[in-house]
Write a protein that binds this DNA or RNA. Structure first.
Length: 517
RNA sequence: GGCCCCAUCGUCUAACGGUUAGGACAGUAGGUUCUCAUCCUGCAAAUCGGAGUUCGAUUCUCCGUGGGGCUGCCA
């Protein structure tokens, strides 16, 4: 199975194109086939320098690099494979040859009409509410007129001659039977006056010569399918299978555009979206597994993707779902990988992190709290720099922490926490020890059970068991905000554990001094 | 205008012609939690309209309607 992805080098890789590329990639991979990339640089006006490399990099970053054709090798654009060249601009003689063949067979003709005349013709047709189509004036040229124009080297194009009486039927892999009346099909330009082919000729010639089995492309190509089918027939070649995938849509249901959305793959990647999330999201826009599975790795997709389950209607490019998938994939990164990913950005912000041999513990605290790697430094700031503590932060209405309560709570906190032996300074112990102080009357039963549990734990010094006048929320709010200086942060116990007993008490003391002042 | 394609919750979608029309995101109400995030539970939310075929249409056919794509010497 050979599939292909043929971008035009006009800029960046479009997310819609990435989805098409992905589907092509999946079809190839699930058959141990080849995913080929060809550059369609037949419009000299629109070609942008650097675009090829850019598109290839995006494909690479997304995780679906091509196997053949134009590829990236050691970071450089290269061509690989026996069916090359893979830049259409390097295949000009080929297109000319087949255009000549079509001319000889009477399936094409030269057209000397100027752009001006064509423009006027169209205007007139539109005025009469007729479909704009070439009027075949050059097909009726007198022989001598034709010869004189030819010898004068008058610029001209080659158009295909559509047999109007035909009805073209075709079986699309996604859409089923398609029917076209040939008389509504225009005599498409195949070879432009600059010697370059149009998409139509190039597509047919290349996909035949490159042994492509399936042409999976966007729905916008559906209406030119009859032209392509006719060309295959004229050249006496077997057409490939075709699958036209539905469009990705803006909110107003029009074709996804730069005007209304971010459409560059590189932009999403730069924002920190994981390739896994992006691919997962794109795969599900227009395809479904038939099960309730929502999360798909590339491998899952290779195993499960099928054209039968591709949708016929367009899909709104809804970023909400992408965000959710981003969170899902973020939390699925193995801790060590996650830590390695955020470490450089954290170090860049806080050089102290460079000699932190307990970085992973900190990373673990934030993994499920952030959606993007770049949020990490802000979430870990308090580990590497003295947090800024303010009364405004310490006071919390919802937790019922008033200004007056702050200092007493801190004193109590310091008293209780200092009882915990350094070697027991762990999440569970901190939590248990602290927990015993704010057991309120309704929780007596639990208190008894805990008492039992504690009595077996000789490592802890059981201090005076007394009802605490403050709620758990009050105590922990003061603790956590004193340690982090943040409104939102990882939990109080885990932060205290990672900070260590000494630092925890120091920060408490410092906050307390600040609050009393 | 012409040609072609499409049509299920707000969104992405599921449903051999027989289901209380299912799931996910978003929304909403709770729960867990010191905060935020996570996680869990509940709720609300859809077959574009009309004919026809059929014992029975989301599903098949036709006609409307709506939306989209194409209509370039762009791809």
């Amino acid at each position: 199975m050979r599939t292909r992805f043929p971008p035009s080098p006009t800029g960046f890789l479009h997310v819609g194109a990435l989805r098409t590329a992905l589907y092509n990639y999946l079809i190839a991979k699930q058959a141990q086939g080849t995913f080929l990339l060809r550059i369609e640089d037949t419009d000299q006006e629109r070609s942008v320098p650097g675009a090829v490399e850019n598109i290839l990099r995006s494909l690479d970053a997304a995780g679906i690099p091509p196997d053949e054709g134009v590829v990236l090798r050691d970071g450089r654009v290269a061509q690989e494979g026996s069916k090359g060249p893979y830049f259409q601009s390097e295949r000009l003689p080929l297109y000319r040859r087949y255009a000549d063949e079509l001319l000889e067979k009477g399936h094409a003709y030269r057209c000397f009409c100027t752009l001006d005349r064509l423009g006027e013709m169209r205007k007139a047709q539109e005025a009469r509410k007729r479909a704009p189509m070439y009027d075949r004036r050059c097909l009726e040229l007198l022989e001598e007129e034709f010869q004189s124009k030819l010898t004068a080297k008058t610029p001209h194009v080659i158009r295909m001659k559509v047999p109007h009486e035909r009805i073209i039927r075709f079986e699309d892999d996604i859409r089923g039977t398609l029917t076209f009346q040939a008389h509504t099909v225009d005599d498409q330009v195949l070879l432009k006056s600059d010697g370059f082919p149009t998409y139509h000729l190039a597509h047919v010639v290349d996909d035949h010569l490159m042994d492509i089995d399936l042409v999976l492309r966007g729905e916008e190509w559906l209406s030119s399918l009859p032209k392509h089918l006719l060309l295959f027939e004229f050249l006496e070649w077997k057409p490939p299978r075709y699958a036209h995938v539905p469009l990705l849509l803006n909110k107003d249901k029009t074709k996804l555009s730069k005007r209304q959305n971010s459409v560059a793959v590189e932009e999403y990647l730069a924002k920190g979206f994981l390739p896994e999330a992006l691919l997962n999201f794109l795969a599900l826009l227009g395809w479904n597994p038939g099960t309730t599975q929502e999360l798909f790795s590339l491998q899952d997709l290779i195993e499960q993707f099928s054209l039968e389950r591709v949708q016929k209607s367009g899909a709104f490019f809804d970023l909400e779902k992408l965000h959710w998938l981003q969170g899902q994939w973020m939390r699925r990164i193995p801790l060590l990988d996650f830590a390695a990913r955020i470490r450089p950005i954290v170090e860049e912000k806080f050089s102290k992190a460079k000699d932190d041999d307990r970085f992973e513990e900190k990373a673990e605290l934030i993994q499920e709290r952030i959606a993007f790697f770049h949020e990490a430094p802000a979430m870990l700031s308090f580990f590497y720099e003295e947090p800024t503590i303010t009364i405004e932060l310490l006071v919390n209405e919802k937790q019922k922490v008033t200004r007056e309560l702050i200092v007493p709570i801190m004193k109590l906190l310091m008293e209780i926490l200092s009882e915990i032996p350094r070697e027991d300074w762990k999440y569970q112990q901190i939590r248990d020890h602290l927990g015993r102080y704010h057991l309120q009357a309704p929780m007596k039963e639990t208190a008894k059970k805990l008492e039992l549990a504690f009595s077996e734990n000789t490592a802890l010094t059981v201090s005076k068991l007394q009802p605490c006048p403050y709620s758990k929320g009050q105590v922990l709010w003061v603790l956590r905000s004193s340690l982090t200086g943040l409104q939102f942060s990882p939990g109080a116990y885990e932060v205290a554990e990672v900070l260590g007993k000494e630092e925890t008490l120091r920060r408490l003391d410092r906050s307390s001094a600040l609050a009393s002042a």
